[in-house]
């Protein structure tokens, strides 16, 4: 499989071949995580910041498997419900020494895991000022996207559907509006269920897709990771190629001249 080197994905001044960003949660073990991430072709992986279990720290650590020398590590602020908690988590992640990128999530509600947009905006302001590369998880809301871009976020990451729901792109029209107005990369974050969802996101013109559950929760995560890689590439290529317009009636593919009489 070849990746088009003439079409790099640029994010915060870095260039990537892959437009698929994957999470590392919900896998059986680090070996499965590693195999799935490799099959996905992703160069950016998200991780969570949590307390070390001090009574049993474990011999192995995620970053022994996904080496920061090979992958761009994108710590998230998952589980944070206030701007303060998200800022605190981002600062800890930076101190832990994997760079200054952060996937900013400030959750507004436990059941839907929808973002608290005002709190996300507040945290984004602080983190941008402190020199972070801020990639915020938001609703498919063009106004929220615009405000986050204005405060200096390096991308906007609208959800396609609730986190882990696998419902696919619920509002492609809003995503299109966000794409039209944005001068920073637009990354669909959350909601993808299967390969066609990822392809749809890319066909809309999104710069990248971020997913975790769709791969980790599949019966065969490694095979699904490969499918997602192919779908993201196919969707991107289709977007660049320019699809034909939709028409109500048929247009023959074979010439009418020379038809037998």
């Amino acid at each position: 499989m070849t990746i088009d080197m003439t079409d790099p994905f640029e994010l915060a001044g870095k260039r990537f071949r892959s437009r698929l960003i994957v999470g590392t949660g919900k896998y059986r073990d680090f070996t499965e995580t590693t195999h799935a991430v490799e099959a996905s072709g992703a160069e950016i992986v998200t991780v969570a910041v949590r307390r070390v279990n001090i009574t049993d720290p474990g011999k192995e650590n995620l970053l022994d498997f996904l080496k920061p020398s090979r992958y761009t590590i994108l710590p998230n602020t998952a589980g944070c419900y206030t701007a303060d908690d998200a800022v605190r988590t981002a600062r800890l992640a930076r101190e832990a020494g994997v760079g200054n990128w952060v996937k900013l999530e400030v959750i507004g509600d436990q059941k839907t895991l929808f973002p608290d947009v005002p709190a996300t905006l507040e945290a984004a302001r602080v983190l941008v000022r402190e020199g972070f590369v801020v990639l915020p998880y938001i609703n498919d809301d063009p106004i929220a996207a615009k405000k986050l871009e204005e405060v200096g976020c390096a991308a906007v990451m609208p959800l396609a559907a609730p986190i882990g729901s696998g419902l696919g792109i619920r509002n492609p029209y809003n995503v299109r509006i966000i794409l039209e107005q944005s001068r920073v990369p637009v990354i669909v974050d959350a909601g993808v269920g299967t390969a066609s969802d990822a392809a749809v996101a890319m066909e809309l013109g999104c710069d990248a897709v971020l997913m975790n559950t769709a791969i980790a929760g599949a019966k065969d995560p490694v095979l699904m990771a490969q499918a997602m890689r192919q779908a993201v590439e196919a969707g991107r290529n289709a977007f660049r190629a320019g699809r034909i317009p939709r028409k109500l009636y048929a247009t023959a593919s074979s010439p009418l001249d020379g038809v037998l009489e």
Partner: peptide, 10 residues
């Protein structure tokens, strides 16, 4: 004291 590290997450 809080000691944190990275674990799998989305």
């Amino acid at each position: 004291v809080e000691i944190v590290h990275f674990i799998g997450g989305g």
